[in-house]
Design a protein around this nucleic acid. Structure first.
Length: 637
RNA sequence: GCCAAUUUAGCUCAGCUGGUAGAGCAGCUGAUUUGUAAUCAGCAGGUCGUUGGUUCGAGUCCGACAAUUGGCUCCA
């Protein structure tokens, strides 16, 4: 048979040759590093025979699919270890994930697992690695599979089998462990040299909180020790950047149980940063024709019934409060308020687009276990805006908004990917007319193509009232956060009966674009803190510059510089204590203040300062004018 | 909410198998006048998350509650 390799070359093999045979024919090294093979688009084990002509690609650690095979095999390895240590353990699912794998298990009896048990399991795994058992694939009939797991008493696998009645069923066995598994797996456990178990968590069977809670064990594995070490170091680095830790150290925000979980309190430093961010965005919006509005934190329940938010979001809202004869809701969304502003006066096509912006605080119920620092909260401020435009203006307005959002992310130097969030087949999740949806989705895609955005499509990610463009940023720990969002909405204009008078003297419905580049100020701050590891750029830092006289003799001159800087609206720390300059510098560095101006006798005599940059060091002596010019330059974003 | 872990001074953490708390930093006072990451000395600071219980005796053991942290989509 003919086997076509990725470079287009064709080699001849006897029918029944395996992926390993092909790998060996290419090179010994490849055979050693091969983890699996893709045969005509299907993942094969290296030991599985290939019967006819095919184009193939051999997978190694360098392929994402290779990593998945590697981690998936490690999940089976862990399962084997668990079965050896905890006879009677039952298994849910154990897939590879981005940087590792997990397995959901139901431990026998009242066995509880904590992180302290992980090293024991890990050692067992390492034993099994040494045993170097091969992974063996076996095709089974559905009845055989059911018989096996009935005998074993694993109701989770039996439930999974219920959904697989029409599929080909395969088992994989390594050593004493057999699992229902689609595969693919590495040739043998000996390759999985560096497994590492990381954490234990509870996870509901099939993600359903009404069902049995299983124990989820997270782990990862690597083929080389230095890769594992590097990954563990990365995790450590991420922990150092944790915004909750830095938020406390840099006095950005606090959480007080007396105020309430999920209700962060902004300290002066954090407030300074937030105001700076707001000013930045306000300025960008002003340039793009937005008008700012302010709406209250409560709204009549009727408002949200009209908008349709009330039934859809009932479980993420706080219960209504009774005020006299009316029911009010802590506002979960700003949109309905803005729609009221739109319809407060008759609109002409000449007035459109109307762009209403607000830093609007909204309240949503999050389960107590989900709260986390600034990133998951119960009250947060959206940098919200709604654009009411004619259909002809829609594409230009979407472009305008995408351009603004990109301006925001490039300003912060963030790695961002773009998702077009469309609806899926589950019609119950969405409101409005299907034809309008399809139109909006097509338009979004057109704009994205015209702007040559690199994007991917996320089916089922749409809002209930319309498709979205989401901007997804990666944080220091590799977690992805959905930040900016742009949504096209044909539903709200109907619900609120929004109108404008067209050039044809007829009434028309406007289209609404919802957008929030930061998403929420709280979450955005949490990401900024971790993104910069607390080392904020000059324009954003809560304190921008420290002025550090070396002795009391320079205090007067130093103070004149402080006054000058403050006069120009810079945020200045003046440290005139009788401490050594080393200490003043140390503290300025610890507070991550971008610059320090060290002033000794020489500088005072020559109208100069010695500049020190945070994290960099001594930058030499400059005139006061030079420093001011530099600061001015850095303030321009 | 559920699972697990954690909770000792403002912060970071010690406190062995139960015998009524300790360090560093921060703070305050004083001395020191200093040239690019921490000068010295003294003082002060805690009903050990809350609350029940076991015990002659609980920071330490047991229970409840609370808060915090990691998880709870990723379909064998």
């Amino acid at each position: 048979m003919n086997i076509t390799l990725p470079d287009g070359s064709v080699r001849e093999f006897a029918s029944g040759a395996t992926g390993m045979d092909i790998a060996k024919s290419i090179s010994e090294g490849l055979a050693r590093n091969a983890l699996g093979i893709i045969v005509n688009g299907v993942n094969y084990d290296l030991s599985r025979s290939i019967e006819q002509d095919a184009s193939v690609r051999i997978l190694t650690w360098n392929d994402d699919e290779g990593k998945e095979i590697f981690r998936h095999s490690t999940a089976h390895l862990m399962a084997e270890a668990l079965e050896a240590l905890y006879p009677g353990v039952k298994f849910g699912i154990g897939p590879p994930i981005e940087n590792g794998f997990y397995y959901d298990v139901d431990l026998p009896g009242d066995t509880k697992l904590s992180v302290e048990d992980l090293p024991v399991i890990e050692n067992k795994m390492k034993e099994l690695v040494k045993a170097d058992n091969s992974y063996q694939r076996a095709e089974k009939t559905w009845e055989e599979a059911v018989a096996y797991f009935t005998e074993k008493g694993d109701e989770y696998k039996l439930e999974l089998l219920e959904g697989l009645k029409d599929s080909e069923i395969t088992f994989y066995t390594q050593g004493n462990f057999t699992d229902l598994c689609r595969g693919t797996h590495v040739p043998s456990t000996g390759m999985l040299k560096y497994p590492k178990l990381l954490s234990v968590a509870g996870a509901y069977w099939r993600g359903d909180s009404s069902r049995q809670q299983l124990t989820r064990i997270y782990g990862t594995s690597f083929p080389k020790k230095d890769l594992l070490d590097e990954y563990l170091k990365q995790l450590e680095e991420a922990a150092k950047r944790d915004h909750k830790k830095l938020g406390r150290e840099l006095k950005i925000f606090m959480i007080s149980p007396m105020v309430g979980g999920g209700l962060p309190v902004w300290l002066p430093n954090g407030t300074s940063m937030r105001r700076t961010l707001e000013a930045f965005l306000r300025n960008e919006q002003k340039k793009r024709g937005y008008q700012e509005v302010i709406t209250p934190h409560l709204g009549n329940l009727e408002l949200y019934k009209t908008s349709g938010h009330y039934p859809y979001y009932a479980d993420s809202q706080y219960p209504p409060m009774q005020i006299e004869e009316e029911q009010y809701l802590l506002k979960p969304m700003n949109c309905p308020h803005h729609h009221q502003i739109y319809s407060s006066e008759p609109r002409s096509y000449r007035d459109l687009p109307v762009r209403l912006a607000e830093f609007g605080t909204v309240y949503r119920y999050e389960q107590s276990g989900e709260l986390s620092g600034l990133s998951r909260v119960r009250g947060f401020t959206q940098d919200d805006a709604h654009i009411y435009c004619t259909h002809d203006q829609l594409k230009d307005e979407i472009k305008n908004v995408i351009e603004l959002t990109q301006k925001v992310f490039t300003t912060f130097g963030m790695d961002v990917s773009t998702r077009l969030s469309f609806r899926d087949d589950n019609a119950e999740k969405y409101g409005g007319d299907l034809a309008l949806w399809e139109r909006a989705q097509a338009e979004i895609k057109e704009v994205a193509d015209e702007m040559q955005l690199e994007y991917f499509i996320g089916e089922g990610e749409a809002a209930f009232y319309g498709p979205k463009i989401d901007f997804i940023v990666r944080d220091a720990i590799g977690r992805k956060w959905q930040l900016g969002t742009v949504q096209v909405d044909y539903v709200m204009p109907e619900r609120f009966q929004l109108e404008y008078m067209g050039a044809d003297n007829q009434k028309h419905r406007p289209v609404i674009i919802h957008r929030a580049p930061f998403g929420s100020m709280e979450r955005f701050m949490s990401i900024l803190i971790e993104h910069y590891a607390g080392n904020f750029p000059f324009w954003l830092a809560p304190t921008q510059v420290s002025v550090l006289p070396i002795t009391d003799a320079q205090n007067e001159y130093a103070e004149s510089i402080v006054a000058k800087l403050k006069d120009m609206d810079y945020r200045v720390n003046f440290d005139n204590r009788s401490e050594k300059v080393q200490r003043k510098i140390a503290e300025s560095e610890q507070k991550k203040i971008p610059f320090a101006l060290v002033i000794g006798k020489r500088e005072a005599e020559n109208n100069q300062v010695a500049l020190r940059e945070h994290g960099v060091g001594d930058k030499g002596v400059l005139s006061v004018e030079e420093v001011l010019a530099m600061f001015k330059d850095l303030s321009n974003v």
